[in-house]
Design a protein around this nucleic acid. Structure first.
Length: 950
RNA sequence: GCAGGGAUGGCGAAAUGGCAAACGCAGCUGGUUUAGAACCAGUACUCUGAGAGUUCGAAUCUCUCUCCCUGUACCA
């Protein structure tokens, strides 16, 4: 009976679906285990073989945990809002919901045929109103919260309002906008409602603020930084300008320190933690106030080196700094304005690319040194960024290379404040070796002490204090897009109002076209039914909008709704918790569900989400924790980044002399151009199928080929899997030809999970023939019914030894996520058992269970053949390793001389060190090696090795 | 520039202080057999990027260098 994988796989996939084999229960005494994949964006291209790698690994782990008796939650869903569907809609007029639904269908079919043990009853789609209802709900919770620094957590905005009305904001220690004014309780109570709302926005965890964006007038849209190339739009090459727009932002900066500290509590890859750490960018130093001469103004600067304050010979402001206009002297005005204008014209990208050119302008103004009271010239320069720190620096040329270069370029003095250091060529920035000189009270102090003293003296003067600065900025949360979550927000008199949670979801309105409006409003500006009626609590036609807010007009309670939508990361920031209770219409999840499932035990996905999704999700989780909705401050205990599967492109070489295609081995010194050809045209020996190539692209139909030994040998190149290089391998083809179990095994067999590795379809025959051997081990080839003969015989000690060393290795491998070595172990095991002609049920049953996480279809079929009718192998207990079967009485000891192994000899494991030494020394080969010399030393490691030195 | 990861047969890799290259692909030899293929038996290659150190013993630990990948950057 043949191993008919197509039939077997279809049969068991149907069985699992019909029996809901992998449905996780919320009410059970079993211990929980939550295995999660990063859910995919369903793109139109479908899956290639690189995509399922992480899913296969997590599926193996989930199946293993079920065998181990856990109640496993292993859900899957779709991150289905996003740009490609919208762009397709702009081009074709097709509603993104339709394209998205079609793509999901393809994804589901492709995922199903690989045999994943997902609990599909819990599927979520971020673009489903039933799902985004809760994304909108979280937004409202954020709006209704502020960050209390004293409690170090988010609290209900009502607690802040009551504090304001009884004590004002003087004693409030909150994370808020820089420009928040101070007020007393009576002042607060005297404010108009609108004024109060404006002030509260400065505290809310999501707030409206003016933000600089990249606006492309020709395309009528905001562009992300990566959509701009050389200052013009990537698409169309239109100019892009910086524009201030009112946008929703998330006060993630409130959580900067906790996001940093939390990293120590989770088992995530170090590179990922490092990029989050860098992204948050904590730096410790001081804020120093420099007063401007002949002026009331002061300029605060942030520095990590307050110890070098006596070396500050000038100040530099970012050209965009708000004080530039006010402090510039009439004589310098023309130069400064020209410089500011020139900088504004340069794109971010230009500025970043060109860091070598030094430019700047003198404002004519002077600041006063806090200690020496000497005048310090104030310059502007584009090496100072408006968005970091205070947008101004105290320039210490002797201690900072950029300041040094600037000073040299503009001939500003470079005082040396370091003991025994030569600064004639470059700045000196080694903190550890720093001894301060020429600095009054700091003279002779090393770096750390000098910093402390400098801060102490600044505080005494009232011109500075110790400060921690973060690179992390608040996250802009508005997008001028159609295909995203609408905000549950309407505007009364320009102030944002939240729609009450019970009226959610606010569903995306229909629009005629998915482009921005002619007046430059986002696509939702095209919607005609997009106003909120506060009487009916419903979305109504825009025509009903009253003349609300206008002086003397009657307010009919119908207001315009927000036109922006939420960014891609909104839907993915709490989806892992929604899986716990995905159909709950009354709450994002029930308390029982979150209490039981708690958090993700294992999260597998790509490292490209390091500073996006994974940072925002941690932020929202901490917020949900503060507000008491979840019990874990970190949502995923362990995270693994699977590596990328790269493609192995195939290349033919065109001789530029005569246009002939030259086989790779014959190129020599010829001038050739490599051309990509489809990988499916090449066999495992790199031989090209010339006839198929001619059919594949007409360009090759008449080409002449220069062969070596009768074949055309292609070149190979490992590149990213992409249509462009004709190296994409579709899992559907692999499944049809070799089966899902072969695909699963092969993806694991390729190499360590976290490593990037090239795909080469040729190698799959190895694991495929392993499966055939496994099948043969169980199924008698002669018996027509495929019955197992001799299954009841007692296993031999040899059989048991093979089985138990396999159990041990496979269990260790799964726990260590070393799936590639498990596959080798299975191969060795089956090779051994085949050689032993093992037919014993006591061996074959546990082996089927061991294999089942990796190759579940064949395992189910063999389990059934072993007589377990109509039951799934998926929840059978994992075999228990028994050391007794591995017990050995003797070992083949390697005998080495000065560390080089010369021969082996068998010795009993019961022998003592001395007995081993005696036996080894007595051996004739030892005497041969020594040639009469007496060894200096004999190292005996019982059970391992003997080393003779001398 | 900075941070992180890496370098082992022709290829993917295994071995994390004790017999380097398990397992598989490709190659070679032989056999059974075929329309194509498939299957079985057997087999070679190579000495861990370079250099130094620690050790009885190093692919593995330490240092220096070279090269490759990934991320990130006038961050004060």
């Amino acid at each position: 009976m043949q191993y008919n994988f197509n039939e077997i796989e279809a049969k068991w996939q149907k069985y699992w679906a019909e029996n809901q084999t992998f449905k996780a229960e919320n009410n059970t005494d079993k211990e929980k285990f939550y295995v999660l994949d990063m859910f995919p964006y369903p793109s139109g291209a479908g899956l290639h073989v690189g995509h399922p790698l992480g899913y296969i690994a997590s599926d193996i782990y989930a199946r293993y945990k079920r065998h181990k008796g856990f109640n496993v939650l292993h859900p899957q869903g779709y991150d289905s809002f996003g740009l490609p569907a919208e762009q397709y809609a702009i081009q074709t007029g097709q509603h993104p919901a339709i394209t998205t639904a079609e793509n999901i269908k393809t994804y589901r079919r492709q995922l199903d045929q690989i045999g994943f043990s997902f609990d599909w009853s819990r599927e979520v789609r971020t673009s489903d109103p039933k799902y985004y209802k809760w994304t909108q709900w979280i937004f409202i919770q954020l709006f209704n919260s502020w960050y209390n620094k004293d409690a170090d957590k988010a609290e209900d905005i009502e607690t802040l309002i009551s504090e304001f009305s009884s004590n004002g904001n003087i004693q409030v220690n909150a994370v808020c906008d820089e420009d928040t004014p101070e007020f007393t309780a009576s002042e607060w109570n005297a404010f108009s409602s609108k004024e109060q709302q404006k002030i509260l926005l400065k505290y809310r965890l999501t707030y409206l603020a003016d933000t600089e964006v990249n606006w492309c007038p020709a395309l009528g849209t905001v562009l992300a930084n990566d959509e701009i190339v050389n200052g013009v739009s990537e698409r169309g090459g239109h100019p892009v300008i910086r524009k201030k727009m009112t946008q929703w932002s998330m006060r993630i900066t409130a959580y900067a320190q906790r996001l940093l500290d939390g990293l120590d509590t989770i088992d995530w890859p170090q590179p990922l933690k490092d990029s989050q750490t860098n992204w948050i960018g904590r730096s410790q130093g001081a804020e120093v106030e420099f007063r401007i001469q002949n002026s009331e103004l002061g300029i605060p600067v942030f520095t990590t080196r307050p110890d070098t304050i006596f070396g500050a010979s000038f100040m530099t402001l970012a050209p965009e700094h708000e004080l530039v206009g006010q402090i510039t002297t009439p004589e310098q005005k023309a130069e400064v304005e020209a410089y500011v204008a020139a900088t504004a014209k340069r794109s971010e990208r230009d500025r970043m690319a060109d860091v070598k050119t030094i430019s700047g302008a003198f404002t004519g103004a002077y600041a006063e040194h806090p200690f020496t009271k000497q005048p310090i010239p104030i310059w502007i320069g584009d090496y100072v960024l408006a968005g970091y720190g205070t947008g101004a620096v105290m320039s210490v040329p002797c201690g900072d290379q950029r300041d040094y270069d600037f000073a040299k370029h503009f001939d500003i003095s470079i005082p040396n404040i370091f003991e025994g250091v030569d600064i004639s060529e470059e700045a000196f920035a080694d903190k550890e070796k720093t001894i301060i000189a020429n600095s009054d009270f700091l003279n002779g102090l090393p770096y750390k002490k000098a910093v402390k003293t400098a801060i102490y003296e600044l505080e005494k003067l009232g011109q500075g204090k110790g400060k921690v600065n973060y690179r992390l900025r608040d996250a802009v949360f508005s997008r001028q897009r159609y295909w995203g979550e609408p905000f549950p927000v309407y505007y009364v008199d320009g102030m944002p109002q939240m729609i009450a949670s019970e009226h959610l979801p606010i569903e995306l309105p229909e629009v005629e076209k998915y482009l921005p409006t002619e007046t430059g409003e986002p696509p939702l500006g095209n919607a005609t039914v997009w106003a909120w009626d506060t009487q009916k609590d419903a979305v109504v036609s825009n025509e009903n909008i009253g003349l609300s807010g206008a002086e003397g007009q009657e307010d009919n309670g119908v207001y315009p709704l927000e036109l922006n939508t939420m960014p891609g990361w909104a839907g993915s920031s709490q989806y892992f918790n929604r899986y716990m209770d995905p159909h709950n219409d009354d709450a994002i999840f029930s308390k029982e569900a979150i209490d039981y499932w708690q958090d993700v035990d294992l999260y597998i996905g790509g490292s490209e989400h390091a500073t996006g999704h994974l940072l925002y999700a941690r932020f929202w989780q901490k917020f949900m924790f503060d507000r008491g909705y979840v019990s874990k401050e970190e949502f995923a205990k362990k995270l693994i980044n699977q590596g990328m599967i790269t493609g192995t492109s195939a290349l033919v070489y065109r001789n530029e002399e005569n246009g002939q295609l030259i086989s790779k081995g014959l190129i020599g010194n010829l001038n050739v151009t490599p051309l990509h050809v489809d990988v499916s045209l090449v066999n495992s020996s790199n031989e090209l199928d010339i006839e198929e190539l001619k059919k594949w692209q007409p360009d090759f139909a008449d080409a002449a080929f220069v062969l070596e030994e009768g074949n055309y040998i292609v070149g190979r190149e490992v590149e990213k899997m992409s249509k462009r290089w004709y190296n994409v391998v579709n899992p559907d083809d692999i499944v049809t030809e070799y089966g899902a179990d072969s695909l699963r095994l092969y993806e694991m067999f390729l190499g360590p999970l976290e490593q990037s590795k090239p795909w080469n379809t040729a190698g799959i025959t190895g694991v495929h023939s392993f499966l055939k051997k496994l099948w043969k081990l169980y199924i008698s080839q002669s018996g027509a019914d495929g019955s197992l003969s001799g299954a009841e015989v007692e296993p031999s000690p040899e059989n048991l030894k093979t089985l138990h060393k396999t159990i041990k290795k496979v269990e260790e491998d799964i726990e260590n996520f070393s799936f590639n070595t498990s596959v080798s172990t299975f191969m060795i095991c089956v090779n051994e058992l085949t050689a032993q002609k093992c037919k014993s049920r006591a061996i074959l049953e546990p082996l089927a269970i061991l294999v089942s996480p990796y190759a579940p279809h064949i395992a189910e079929e063999l389990w059934e053949k072993l007589g377990h009718d109509n039951t799934s192998i998926s929840k059978v207990a994992f075999p228990v390793f028994d050391e007794r079967h591995l017990a050995e009485s003797s070992k083949e000891y390697p005998i080495s001389f000065n560390g080089k192994m010369k021969f082996t000899m068998p010795l009993s494991l019961d022998l003592s060190k001395e007995e081993i030494e005696t036996a080894v020394m007595a051996h004739e080969k030892t005497q041969q090696q020594l040639q009469g010399r007496t060894p200096k030393k004999v190292i005996v490691v019982p059970g391992k090795i003997v080393n003779i030195v001398g």
